[in-house]
């Protein structure tokens, strides 16, 4: 259990693996699992506006 960096909601990611991306259940922000022991998440990277160019 850890907190969403955008809205502070409790998020559960113990069953996930590092690098996995999932949405916060409250604010919908995409989060990336950084580590599982201890659990830590960060805002998932977004595509930049020049994606593909």
């Amino acid at each position: 259990m850890t907190e969403c960096p955008a809205c502070d909601a409790h998020v559960e990611c113990a069953a996930m693996v590092a690098g996995e991306i999932f949405p916060c259940t409250d604010c919908g922000t995409e989060l990336e699992v950084v580590t599982t022991l201890p659990t830590a998440v960060q805002l998932a990277p977004k595509e930049a506006e020049d994606w593909g160019e």
Partner: peptide, 11 residues
Amino acid sequence: RIVHEADGIHR
């Protein structure tokens, strides 16, 4: 319900 989401068309 608190509805304030980061993405999507129903934010």
